[in-house]
Design a protein around this nucleic acid. Sequence first.
RNA 1: GGCGUGGUAGCUCAGUUGGUGAGAGCGCCGGAUUCAUAACCCGGAGGUCGGCGGUUCAAAUCCGCCCCACGCUACCA
Length: 580
Amino acid sequence: MTRHLITSAIPYINGIKHLGNLVGSQLPADLFARYQRARGAEVLFLCATDEHGTPAELAAAKAGKPVAEYCAEMHEIQAEIARGFALSFDHFGRSSSPQNHRLTQHFAGRLADAGLIREVSERQVYSNADGRFLPDRYIEGTCPNCGYDKARGDQCENCTKQLDPTDLINPRSAIGGSTDLEVRETKHLYLRQSALKDELDAWIDSKSDWPVLTTSIAKKWLHDGDGLQDRGITRDLDWGIPVKKGEDDWPGMEGKVFYVWFDAPIEYIACAQEWADAGKGPAPEPGADKDSVWERWWRTDRGADDVRYTQFMGKDNVPFHTLSFPATIIGSGEDWKLVDYIKSFNYLNYDGGQFSTSQGRGIFMDQALSILPADYWRWWLLSHAPESSDSEFTWENFQAAVNKDLADVLGNFVSRITKFCRSKFGEALPEGGAWGPEEEALADDLTARIRAYEGFMDAIEVRKSASALRAIWVVGNEYLQTVAPWTTFKTDPDRAAAQVRMGLNLIRLYAVLSQPFIPEASAGMLTAMNATDASWPDDVRAALQALPPGHGFTVPEVMFAKITDEQREDWQSRFAGTRG
RNA sequence: GGCGUGGUAGCUCAGUUGGUGAGAGCGCCGGAUUCAUAACCCGGAGGUCGGCGGUUCAAAUCCGCCCCACGCUACCA
């Protein structure tokens, strides 16, 4: 049995993420993790918060808190929201963990030993008032090209011309507006990605089964202009992982930290160690050390050869996962696991524009949970995942899709059969009758559909999986409509009993199949059916008879209340402006 | 500017190793049904497959040019 290592791009610490972030990484990763677990695979599903960098320091300052305290609080908030969305991480770690500190410094040391690190002395803008070096886009000024007075140091948003901070007229700090800026000399470490270009190129070439989105972005970076450029991996900041060469000091680099995009992917590995150190993993094999618990997922020399590693991320994260992080791993010369499959997503737009964290535009994860159960969001987001191109959230579409799919097709199916059974036979599966041609045909049809569903899920074709699942729900309604137990009951109660048993067994089957998409509703269905067996229907005929005659159940409450026009209009106006 | 992704029914999207009359869901119209959350089921209407040109017996699919939308463009993460 394949073991699945699954990671979601780690969300940045400085605030609550919006639904566009969710659908691009954590949610599809959770879908895949839940599915593989349901199929019986051993799964390690990891995510974490990405806690370093300038934005975190500034957000903490704005909140009036020490950055470590701010990050700890925000981590807990994000963890709570993740639980609210039923994201089934085996561990939700932190890139600021001691484990990541050690590993990041370890990788830097290995890369230095391999000659893949070079020191570069460069000139950067320093703000005396802010007491820090400013990343290019934290410098504002007048664009020398078009005269726009809020141009950023990396690019003018008005005329799109790319800029150097020193090009700006009347430059000022975007943090506090200070014009007390100066150019200072500072030394940084660069990862010599260019030295690994051919190796990375060949590796990407070998991934013919990856989404076009993933490979095309990687190829662009590899071949654009002069090819893959070396990348600075250190910053002049206080909050971060101190630059060290393994366990040794790095002369000349005192007071500097690693760049977040160097340490963030390494957190994928460190997170596994956090998971093991927290005692969440199995006990070590007899005679093995405790690190073997996580290393068997990550070290090919310690048993990770049979691991299939899948990463999920939005398209903006692709370069770091296809190039920088693999360069780090390959360059270390050690036997770390490289990613096997990268599932990347386009963007989800909100009502004609982009979701925007900085502008507070769209729906944020905490707001979403405050108005509707997680399953509503999970279903809509996954069934509309931006796989082939950007997709769009509108309240009308959301209302229509959720009402139709969840309330009408699935929820109503559960209602109609359980209530019918209760009224004619009582709250237990009725005795009598046997399968006829309709039931045999249904079993055949479902078997074919379930195998197709598995194929889409295995291939991480998210929207097609959702569509296939929905079609499986529809089949149940078609069956009831065709055999019409309310009619047969009048002339042949035994026949009706067999039909009702089939309907009730379908509920249990649907719960099992739907669990990766809508885990809470699925659990509710299993509870209502008093079902203890939630194993995957490898044998559909057997699954359709899992609940025997006489098995008691309860009629569940309405599983999915419909979204009313009034609610929709209310939310539409409430979330139209900025978050407040 | 360069690169990338997309432009297929009112809406959201499938579909290209070129070939039986171009598909799904929603919406709409009609029918059937009454177990059910005014739900379900069946049927129907609806499309110059972004535009122009080319290759071919044959193009949504291949080639060229153009238009439009979105994204990326390496110090935000």
